[in-house]
Amino acid sequence: MTSDLTALRRSLAAAGITPATVVPAASAGRREEAEIHLATLLEGDRVEARDVGEPAGWPDPVAFLDGVQHSEVVGYAGSSPIVVASVAAAVRERTARVLATKLVQRRELAIGRRAALDAAGPVLDALERIELSDVDPPHPIRELAQAGAALDDARGALEVAVGVAYRNESRGWLVIDGSLAESPVWAQDHRMVGVAKSHSSLPFDGADLVAYLRLPPGHRSPIFAPASRRLAPVRAWAVRLWPWEGKDLLHGLIRVEVAPVNGTPVMADQISRWLLAERAPISAPDPRWDRMLYGIRSVEDFLKATRVSPHR
């Protein structure tokens, strides 16, 4: 994100825009709704826990991909907000236990209705413009929500670009934070694994859902085809990394996504064993340490540490 928002706000004020200082809710990540999208079970006829065996180390090299985003409202043109944002994505590759950054890309964005962005004049020229729809009459709350969605898309697109770039140059496995279905290319990549921490969208209901959510540690669910991934079909299963009793039903539960070619029980067990080995080192003090892989957290830490803090 542009390093001096104070100066930017001054320039906007000079251009007739009313400066503002607001960090939108959930500016750092996408919001999700709790839903059930019934998946197609591909292994057995009901959901039951399957022991994956002892943890095993992932063969070198293995890389991790993650992205971050941040946005602030810097002014209002009339009632329309102007949002300045940054998105970044990086890949850190692990060889001989040591992580090193292989790829990093950033985008600096100005998001708003065209009229609002035009009103700012050349002040925002250094930033990439993302224009929101101006079909509906101006509504600041709706525009902020639209800006958030646009930001999510921008980050996702950047992650895909970085992931593809890495895979074009490497034969190692790439683990991403989230779903492989973000990109048809990812969804077909036989060396990519998506690890989703969020369970807002659940693949089963009834007894299957209970069995799915009550997996014991070191066990996985059967392989299934998620219903919400029709455009980029993938194979998925859940793995319990840590015991959940006494904590939370979702504690230590991750959803793993792979390309259909890897959707075999053998590969599911193998990848699950690799993921079990990734429990250590744990990602504490991150509150999501039970589901966040240390490599993913390392990418996130890197991106946050190298982000130039905006001056308020």
């Binding site: 180390g57 992932w58 040591v98 080192p281 744990i282 504490a284 390392s298």
Partner: peptide, 27 residues
């Protein structure tokens, strides 16, 4: 990057010898 030694113990499940074989060397 640990906030508490307890996290290291949890990560190694109480076994100090495991730390050397953790797939990633902690930052």
């Amino acid at each position: 990057d640990l906030a508490s030694p307890l996290h290291a113990v949890i990560g190694a499940e109480g076994d100090p010898s495991v730390v050397a074989s953790e797939p990633t060397a902690r930052t």
